[in-house]
Write a protein that binds this DNA or RNA. Structure first.
Lengths: 145, 145
DNA sequence: GTATATGCAAAGCATTTGCATTAAA
DNA sequence: TTTAATGCAAATGCTTTGCATATAC
């Protein structure tokens, strides 16, 4: 059994070294975004951040999330209706499984993902950079029995 | 050489037989949504529809698109920023290639897509129904030489 | 001290909704 | 004739932006 050690601002500190101006707000947002199967909406990040720093604004949360996405430290996921979600799991390649009933989202590692390629006659002259896979289904709670 | 024959309402007529109340507006929207590599925004559908039926409203376009999506006759694609797009190609299984520069979207048939599965220990109890694959890259125009 | 981030409030865009009118069946 | 679709305009939800103030460096 290992307890979760709160290493405040592991990510934030790393970004500071890259020249990121480290504010209390940014540190809190970075601290919220840790772990697997974490797919928080901006709203959820804001709530969690407010628990620590009550005066943090939505605008700052959005600004910070967009910076983290542009820096490649957080993934942005648009799935189904509702707001975008933010996924801090960038170190391990993974895909997603979405419940079309309730929107629940899980990280998954499908089999055969490496073998998946786009033949050159299918590339339409594009320079292909990456791919995202979204499995759709119903979670246990939404399956009805 | 084969000229495109305008078969007015092929889709619309089929849906009428399924009990869809066939109005001029719905017929026009259905007529706009034909072909491969067709990924129109609601706005674009509205413009194209207005060329034929000037009085058609955005609300009706959205209503109709949502019905077609719910009937499984049109696919809804959320990719990157900007509005959703609508893809009438539902008969042939296919995936998408997105230009992250300009948003251009192409239908593709990747290799190895059939071999792609989610092992049961990765399903988190979900009943898996399908999957979407989005290749990301830069189109010829956005590659900069 | 200076450049940059913050908070607020307002604006923006995409989409949905309520309701009286119109049209399909 | 009846039931459902339309158009309009207002409302919604999410996200971005402008600007004066505050803060990291």
């Amino acid at each position: 059994m290992r307890r979760q050690m709160v290493i405040s601002s592991e990510l934030a500190e790393r970004l500071r070294q890259r020249g990121w101006r480290l504010t209390a707000q940014r540190r809190v947002v970075a601290d919220v975004l840790v772990g697997d199967h974490v797919h928080l909406s901006a709203e959820a990040v804001h709530s969690a951040a407010q628990a620590v720093l009550p005066e943090i604004s939505m605008a700052t949360v959005y600004n910070t999330l967009n910076e983290l996405v542009n820096m490649g430290e957080v993934l942005e996921i648009s799935a189904g209706p509702g707001p975008k979600r933010y996924d801090p799991n960038t170190t391990v390649a993974h895909q997603h499984l979405l419940c079309t009933g309730c929107g629940a989202l899980r990280d998954v590692a499908p089999e055969g993902a490496d073998a998946l390629t786009l033949p050159s006659d299918q590339r339409h002259g594009f320079q292909v950079v990456g791919l995202d896979i979204m499995f759709r289904g119903l979670c246990p709670a939404c399956t009805g029995t």
